[in-house]
Nucleic acid binder design. Structure first.
Lengths: 226, 226
DNA sequence: CTAAAATTTGAACGATTGGTAGAATATTAG
DNA sequence: CTAATATTCTACCAATCGTTCAAATTTTAG
């Protein structure tokens, strides 16, 4: 972090192309979106506290002063990340939970959905679960509420399954949910797009494992689907 | 973080007792152990980068200068945390894995062991999985190796189970292990000692869920044991 | 082209940080 | 008690940080 270099070409960071080279960076116009994307990766890799605005600026080929034209301050970047994660997560899950289908199918789809986000938006998700302590005030409370609410949708699916007699009676939906979400969220610690399995395959495996377990009792295959 | 106050009594932080009060803190003599304990909680709550040595000193009722008599620098505190987590984790798991017992029983005990540490040493574990990026050099490599090795013990238990015909054929031991570890490690995000279930009960639930799943097929109860 | 608007720079600021060193204090041994 | 040792305090440094802002530059509109 925080080296003395600026650009890859060592020049001042501006859009001028100094040689016959076509522009070395197909420069995306600076925007909140671009800042959030770059910051997500840096926050995920090095942590919010250890990432400076100079670092973010450098990643975008811009001085940190420019960032302040697009965001109010460093915390707002973090806020944007949290908002984006929830915006991407909430609605699809709600639709899955409200659809007319058996609880086991809902659970499968919910796991699929959650794994997909954890894999495709790994940096954002890492930040989401790692840096909540750096939020404060009403926004922190809002995020906490929405996160709890997201978890409760999972919980309700499990509860439905029990009530319908499909899931084991006597199990605690809250603990089950924590287990499932833990399984999925842990993706950000190990998943690499170059790995052997696609997010869909991993989700399928987790769903099978959640429904039938690992024991060989002839219930269902746990080999990869898709 | 980093307020202007010093002690709870506002005085300079030393051992002198100024009023008729008996000593307000049954002062534990400063030591690496005490520093690691206090730092673990602060790092877990606020992050490594956002925790200053002043903060740690304040938590111990001491100025940061005193810390440097016991530790080389801030990073060494982090190193001590990582070393302690692995020291506590590795040996018991090795013994479980090497014992003469069926793979399913090994897996149960391994989960029990891992959950216990995640619950009883929650701050340390949080730091362990959150702040690895702040390590560097040979030590970072050593930790990565030992962590991988720890995971591979789980993996081997699953592999054994498949080979013995107890676990489903065709499942990927690596993905299964990541799922199990994710389930357990996620504890640090939600577990509170004041909660409804003991670590042993939670571990029991996770073990049942891992073996038989949530579906109601009359295989095994998932209600709390112990 | 020109002028206005949008965007970025560059430099500076006050605060905080990890780290250091010598003086001060507390503890222990004789 | 005294001297030696162990521990902590105080004050300071250099670096880095988030933030601000006027000036410079680029982009857009007419």
């Amino acid at each position: 972090m925080s080296q003395k270099t600026f650009n890859s070409n060592g020049s001042r960071p501006n859009r001028k192309v100094e040689k016959g080279q076509e522009e070395e960076r197909p420069r995306l116009r600076l925007s909140q979106q671009a800042i959030v994307a770059a910051a997500s990766e840096l926050f995920a890799r090095n942590g919010f506290g250890a990432t400076s605005l100079d670092d973010i600026g450098e990643a975008l080929g811009v001085t940190k002063g420019a960032l302040y034209y697009h965001v109010k301050n460093k915390e707002e970047i973090l806020k944007l990340i949290f908002t984006m994660v929830l915006t991407l997560s909430e609605e699809p899950l709600r639709q899955i939970a409200e659809a007319e289908q058996p609880p086991a199918e809902k659970l499968r789809q919910a796991i699929q959905h959650h794994v997909e986000i954890a894999a495709d938006r790994s940096p954002m998700m890492t930040v989401f679960y790692r840096e909540e302590a750096h939020l404060s005030g009403p926004f922190a409370r809002e995020i906490a509420t929405r996160k709890k609410s997201y978890e409760r949708v999972f919980e309700r699916i499990v509860s439905e399954g029990i009530a319908a007699g499909h899931f084991k009676p006597g199990l605690d939906p809250k603990i089950a949910t924590y287990g499932i979400l833990g399984m999925c969220n842990w993706l950000s610690q190990w998943y690499r797009p170059s790995g052997a399995y696609s997010p869909a395959q991993i989700a399928d495996f987790f769903a099978q494992m959640t429904e039938f377990g690992l024991m060989n009792s002839g219930q269902g295959s746990v080999s990869s689907g898709q």
